[in-house]
């Protein structure tokens, strides 16, 4: 089953990066979400896979590693906060400029304010 999980991580990463390379805000945010999924699962499996071994003391003989789980639990919630912030930035950008392209326009040398 390790191969199945590894392929999921790989595919989610690839999809995430592909979407992040699009030129509009919405797909970039979706890409970021995919990448978060991949990273969260990656951290989770760093505790190695185990079945029927939930880390609830007293329910079995062996337990899955609880530490990566605790890390990922908070990471899931934080990635929601991050996605939400970027989302409002995307909305703000779109509403104030009238387009949702992420790159600066041609001719703009990328040093706004100088």
């Amino acid at each position: 089953m390790e191969a199945l999980l590894a392929s999921v991580i790989g595919l989610l990463t690839a999809v995430g990066i592909y979407l992040m390379l699009r030129l509009r805000t919405f797909p970039v945010i979706l890409g970021l979400t995919f990448l978060s999924y991949a990273v969260n699962i990656f951290i989770f499996v760093s505790g190695r896979l185990a079945v029927n071994a939930a880390p609830i003391i007293g329910t079995g003989d062996t337990y899955a590693d609880p530490l990566p789980q605790a890390l990922v639990l908070t990471a899931i919630v934080i990635s929601f906060g991050m996605t939400a912030v970027i989302m409002i930035m995307a909305i703000g950008g779109y509403l104030s400029s009238g387009h949702d392209r992420i790159d600066l326009d041609a001719g703009d040398d990328g040093e706004a304010g100088q």
């Binding site: 590894a6 991580i9 989610l12 592909y18 190695r48």
Partner: peptide, 18 residues
């Protein structure tokens, strides 16, 4: 490029889990 990253991460994850 996305494929390279995906294969790399997937392989890394597999190597780690095994």
């Amino acid at each position: 490029i996305a494929g390279i990253a995906g294969v790399g991460i997937g392989a890394l994850a597999y190597a780690m889990m095994t």
